[in-house]
Simulated scan of single mutants.
Amino acid sequence: MFTYEVSPVFILMEEVLLKKMQSIVGWSEDEGDGIFCPGGSMSNLYSILLARYHFYPKVKTSGMRALPQLAIFTSEHSHYSVKKSAAALGLGSDNVVTVRCDERGKMIPAELSSAILTAQEKGLVPFYVSATAGTTVYGAVDPLEAIADVCSAHSLWMHVDAAWGGGLLMSARHRMKLQGIQRACSVTWNPHKLMGVPLQCSAFLVRKRGLLKECNGSGADYLFQQDKPYDVSYDTGDKSIQCGRHVDAFKLWLMWKAKGSQGFGAQVNKCLENAEYLYDLLQRRPGFQLVFQDKPEHCNVCFWYTPPSVCCLPHGPDRDKRLHQVAPQIKARMMEKGSVMIGYQPLGAKVNFFRCVLSNPATQHEDIDFLLDEIVKLGHDL
């Protein structure tokens, strides 16, 4: 996918999908642009690339000498691709300021405001904030409206990394969790996550129409001739860092035709219902403890399993050391047996805990029951 003449049907499919997704985000018909990217990390990189060009267009021709020392802001629970993108674009990962979150994993807007002022005092120039809608570990959604207010007050580019949480927009029951996303300058949304589209399928949406072409276009006249017998705006290859692109849009188009928006909404609702079912089980079942007591906001449910030999220990460093070893050992036994497999990780001062992500709508309550039974069976003797 780079010119209309090479793949006319797929070019039109991509355009229709992008307009539909922009509308769902909450942008009007006369604004918005986008492109499908090879994953959320690349979509996030596009957002920083465009934000930098928006404020400092000379960087395209003059390079880094056209820039002051820029600062990027993102939550301490955000995806690692923000720092990786800053490194790749020459901005430096040290200039990515991580903003403190509350106990639920949400960025604290007051801390963002404070971090911006501190960066300015150090001589840095803030230009970009990445809010997260669906963090990797907790599934937390940052307070987008409040973050939008901060960005507006300081004239900063607001990006929303909704790679994981974007699918919530398909549910009438859950889309209000992303209230404020319509105020973003750009959005990452991965249908290959919550919506179940096969890898890879990531959409990068930008509110300012034409900015993708201005930032990335090279105008190669051997490919993007301006005197073609059709509307050359359909030659979307010049909006991309790539030239030829995989036809990722087709998978989403076909699935959307099959399921419909209501089907996607029902699928999302089922995933969150399963997460709530697991949450309810964990509250009642001995030997299990939730990482935080609040009802899950997304499909992520985080918990510890405490074997009998650890349960009896007094709280303190020795108990934490023993508990830290439990999840990795159970995970190893899961893989050796081949029965189930879920992730684990530590986070901050919290020792290793299980992170169960219920993103498959085919999962039934008996599968979730089996998961907890299997954890007990594999870990009771540790």
Rank of each mutant, 00 (worst) to 15 (best):
V16S: 06
I24S: 05
D33M: 09
S43W: 05
Y46V: 04
R52G: 10
H54M: 10
F55E: 08
V59I: 15
T61S: 11
L67W: 08
Q69F: 07
F73Y: 13
T74C: 14
S75P: 02
A86L: 05
S93Y: 04
N95H: 13
N95K: 12
T98Q: 15
R100W: 03
C101F: 03
R104N: 10
K106C: 13
K122Y: 07
K122N: 04
S130M: 04
P143H: 06
P143R: 07
P143T: 10
A146E: 15
M158E: 11
M158W: 12
H159R: 14
D161I: 10
G167F: 11
M170N: 05
M176Q: 15
I181A: 05
Q182I: 05
S186L: 12
S186R: 00
N190I: 03
N190H: 13
L199M: 08
Q200F: 13
C201N: 14
S202K: 00
V206I: 12
G210M: 09
K213R: 15
S218G: 06
G219Y: 10
Q225A: 13
Q226H: 09
P229V: 05
V232E: 11
Q242R: 01
G244K: 00
R245Q: 15
W256F: 11
A258I: 06
G263C: 10
Q267V: 02
C271F: 02
L272P: 03
E276K: 07
Q283A: 14
Q283M: 12
F292E: 02
K295T: 10
P296V: 04
H298G: 03
W304G: 01
Y305L: 07
T306H: 00
K321H: 08
M341A: 10
I342R: 07
G343A: 15
F353C: 14
F354M: 12
V357R: 00
D369C: 09
L378A: 06
